[in-house]
Design a protein around this nucleic acid. Structure first.
Length: 557
RNA sequence: UGGGGUGUCGCCAAGCGGUAAGGCACAAGGUUUUGAUCCUUGCAUGCGCAGGUUCGAAUCCUGCCACCCCAGCCA
């Protein structure tokens, strides 16, 4: 798929790689990797990282490994691993190979013994608490551990016994011997192995010691022959350690780590921990809830892979902090669906209309185009009848002349149908409008009426032919643009109206709509058949995004 | 008050010493049986601030200021 991937605009990482290629570095190869930890579902921020690592490699005819960073059995699972594979595939990217960091456990272990033999690693028997105290803090240096000068023999013996399972979790830890006074805290004798008597979803009970990220990641990169290791800015001050380990090991492949800023999207949260809580507390309907910024959620809501890729292309790649507006994402899916989604009619908030001069029992079939500017999308038949539904918002008892829809005594065009005129409002005892009595002009099907202009066009569905459908509208999950910046707990910032469920009607051509199909409901927005809850017996549509609504803006002002 | 980063239009973002791309948003027109789409036009004498170098600076130098990240046996 790489040649279909949209080209990225100029960015600093591409510039670096282009220069490397010009200088003949890495034998002209570009090899990247995407290294998720299988401890949660991927979100739109990961999509950015995926588009960068897979996309840039693809642009230079390179390849990308999908590597699961499974070094912490406490948090990881097969379910997450499978969801990640599915999401990357759905986004349209192909990995060269799937690897797991756990594939390298034995090699990693051997390198650790080598570090011990070089006198560059030692077993520390301090408690976690003691280690924290000795680490110092941001402004003052750390102090050496009392175990720092154990002999190579003792270290080797202890480390082998750690592996053999002779000790309990937390009894010992293997540390690199670097510099406890380094201004970079990551260099203050970082831990590289901890004891965890725990089942690992991939290696089972083979290991009871597990390597840590900093140690595992750079070596894995090197073993795979990665040329450019792209990650987010939070790893910037881990780079000296990354380089230190590879330099000490004298491995022939020393990838270049390049960091970019991660995506911040307004009105949502991206932290894996926070997403997990939303799911586990059932505040949302699982990891694929359409209100979540997860790939699964966006997919279920109706986003296309192409729209997400386009979004990632538009937001660019830099090192600066960013707060991308929701409008940027929405614009991408509107662009995509505007071209590709067939048009249909659906009424969200039905108001029944009776056309008093239309013959009872008559049903008229009208052939209409599926797309206003793409004939290749063909036509379909819709049914017109004496009783129809229109949207409640398309009729008003009182309105100024800016309002182009139906008013008493006024005319409006029914999309692809006749011009009708409203004669009478029927209300219930509580004063709610429950029905409208109208008349239609028989001479207006497919042509404009003589001698007068009808400015408004509204959509409709035949009462006799339409089918009921559940329609779900979504608003942002949070009420504030920067939930992470708030001093309040994010639970308090959840939008109580993030989902609205409507009982509407859609034209009968949608009866056979299949999972995942997307349509434009004319004048309303783009809708997608819900993959979880929709069935032929009970249709459920998710609103992907509304149409641009200039009228709403006019009304506001 | 340690270290590492970042500051160009409301948001994203090109720019790499030769006189501020583009996208989103916004505004104004035109087309339109979707108040959609599409088209046209407008939108930073200004690049965090202050000095300096230069014929010329967003780009180089100096000094400030603001914001972000780091003290897991998480990744």
């Amino acid at each position: 798929m790489s040649e279909e991937i949209e080209k990225y605009p100029a960015n600093f990482i591409r510039n670096i790689i282009e220069q490397d290629l010009r200088e003949g570095k890495n034998g002209g190869n570009v090899v990247t990797r995407f290294p998720p930890e299988p401890s949660g579902y991927l979100h739109i921020g990961h999509a950015k990282a995926i588009c960068i690592s897979f996309g840039i490699a693809g642009e230079f005819n390179g390849s990308t490994y999908l590597r699961f960073d499974d070094t912490n059995p406490q948090k990881e699972s097969i379910e997450f691993m499978e969801s990640i594979k599915k999401d990357i595939d759905w986004l349209g990217f192909e990995w060269l190979e799937i690897r797991n960091a756990s594939d390298y456990f034995e090699q990693l272990y051997q390198f650790a013994e080598k570090f011990i033999e070089m006198g560059k690693a030692y077993v520390d028997s301090c408690s976690a608490d003691e280690i924290r105290k000795l680490r110092g803090n941001l402004t003052s240096p750390g102090e050496n551990s009392p175990y720092r000068d154990r002999s190579i023999e003792e270290n080797l013996d202890l480390f082998r016994r750690m592996r053999a399972g002779e000790f309990a979790d937390g009894d010992h830890i293997l540390r690199l011997k670097i510099d406890m006074a380094s201004p970079n805290i990551n260099m203050r004798d970082p831990a590289i192995y901890r004891i965890r008597h725990m089942h690992h979803f991939k290696t089972g009970n083979e290991w009871c010691i597990y390597p840590l990220y900093d140690y595992t990641h750079c070596i894995s990169d090197s073993l795979e022959g990665i040329t450019h290791s792209l990650c987010d800015l939070s790893f910037e001050d881990h780079r000296p350690l990354y380089d230190w380990i590879l330099d000490e090991l004298r491995l022939n492949c020393h990838p270049q780590q390049i960091e970019f800023s991660r995506l911040n999207l307004q009105f949502t949260v991206m932290a894996k921990r926070k997403l997990k809580v939303l799911v586990e507390e059932n505040l949302v309907d699982g990891w694929d809830d359409p209100r979540l910024p997860t790939i699964a959620g966006l997919r279920r809501k109706g986003y296309t892979p192409g729209s997400i890729r386009e979004f990632c292309r538009r937001i660019g790649v830099t090192k600066s902090d960013n707060n991308v507006e929701l409008g940027m994402l929405e614009s991408c899916i509107r662009d995509d669906l505007g071209d590709s989604a067939p048009r249909v009619m659906g009424v969200l908030n039905p108001l029944k209309i009776v056309l008093e001069n239309y013959p009872e029992g008559q049903m008229e079939s009208i052939e209409v185009p599926n797309h206003p500017k793409d004939e290749s999308m063909g036509t379909r038949k819709i049914q017109f009848s004496r009783e129809i539904y229109i949207d409640q918002a398309d009729f008003r008892e009182t309105a100024n002349r800016k309002y182009k829809r139906l008013v008493i005594g006024g005319e409006v065009r029914l999309r692809y149908g006749y011009v009708i005129k409203a004669n009478e409002v029927i209300k219930d005892d509580a004063g709610n409008i429950i029905e409208l009595r109208c008349s239609y002009d028989p001479d207006t099907l497919g042509k404009n009426p003589e001698g007068r202009k009808v400015k408004g066009v509204i959509h409709w569905v035949s009462v006799d032919d339409g089918v009921p459908a559940e329609i779900r509208l979504y608003e942002p999950l949070f009420t504030v643009d920067f939930p992470d910046a708030s001093e309040k707990d994010y639970h308090e910032l959840i939008n109580p109206n993030s989902m609205t469920v409507l009982k509407g009607f859609v034209e009968s051509s949608l009866k056979e709509a299949s999972i995942d199909q997307r349509f434009q409901f004319e004048r309303e927005g783009y809708f997608c058949v819900d993959r979880k809850d929709s069935s032929t017996e009970a249709l459920v549509f998710n609103r992907v995004v509304g149409l641009r609504d200039t009228w709403a803006k006019i009304e506001k002002s």
